[in-house]
Design a protein around this nucleic acid. Structure first.
Lengths: 152, 152
DNA sequence: CTGGTTGTAACAAAGAAGATTACAACAAAT
DNA sequence: ATTTGTTGTAATCTTCTTTGTTACAACCAG
């Protein structure tokens, strides 16, 4: 199985906030339209991002905004906030290896540190990308699109 | 969601082959007992490992053995063989982002290269671990267990 | 107080993983 | 040639997870 789409959705949400917050109020309905995902799902994700202190959202008034400087939020922060993998473990283990078998009862001893290394490599890379990078690249591609439309 | 337990199962299978092949015939029933997973599931995984040229298994005769030198099989080979993530993509994308929204229709341009980097970091780490490492550590932990039992 | 919004509960729908049963294909031993 | 033990695979079931959907209370601003 893959990592939940909540992660790419959350990034999409930040890209929208960065791009549109001066122009529109970025509500769950607005985001639902852009992502083509149900507004309740969006609100759940917004709630998780808010819980992690990454964005501000409020009842009544509505509209999401980023809560910290963009270069201080990494993809890893977002990944952790939306709780993509169970218990934070990337790898799923078969549940009850036999305690009668020497390999079965030691498989975690044998394997866990290796899986931790793999997961750490992935998370380090996530930590190296910030929302500032995201904003810069979003602007780049939107500008390219605009220029292409003008036939340059 | 997490990465399918087929991966940890496949590693468990190799640990069993390494440990027991001189003593027992390592059949799908044997492995089902050690992993506590249904033999049909084991046979499916054995089939994938065989398809990737990592092990030998045959009808009738039965019993799995490793097809290549242990230091020439990496965790990445195993990971790829058992097809853990759809289309080889670690991240799941929301399916139909709006083409009306500038962000929606560019989200893949913006994001794909970053996700590729993250995935590559993880796969490089997987590639750095071999079945030889697995065998060495398996022997280490089984020996530790034996010594502990003798009260050393 | 009205309108628009979030937060959340409850349930439905869809999809995927793994379990299970059943059986044909096959090889080796006798 | 038959028996035995095994793999390969189809078909179906159960369970779990994700996502969608409906509904509505809580809330804020004008």
């Amino acid at each position: 199985m893959q990592i939940s789409s909540r992660f790419t959705l959350a990034i999409h949400i930040f890209a929208c906030i960065n791009t549109f917050e001066d122009e529109y109020k970025v509500t769950s309905d607005f985001l639902a339209e852009s992502t083509n995902v149900n507004p309740v799902i969006i609100r759940k994700i917004l709630g998780q991002l808010k819980g992690a202190g990454l964005i501000n959202v409020a009842r009544g008034t509505g509209g999401a905004s980023v809560a910290k400087p963009l270069n201080q939020i990494t993809f890893l922060d977002v990944y952790r906030a939306v709780d993509c993998v169970e218990n934070g473990n990337l790898f799923h283990f078969h549940e009850n290896p036999s305690t009668n078998c020497p390999v079965g009862r030691n498989i975690h001893h044998i394997l866990d540190d290796k899986l931790v290394r793999v997961q750490a490599a992935m998370e380090n890379e996530l930590a190296s990308i910030t929302l500032e990078d995201l904003k810069r690249d979003t602007e780049k591609y939107l500008l390219q699109e605009k220029e292409a439309a003008q036939g340059k």
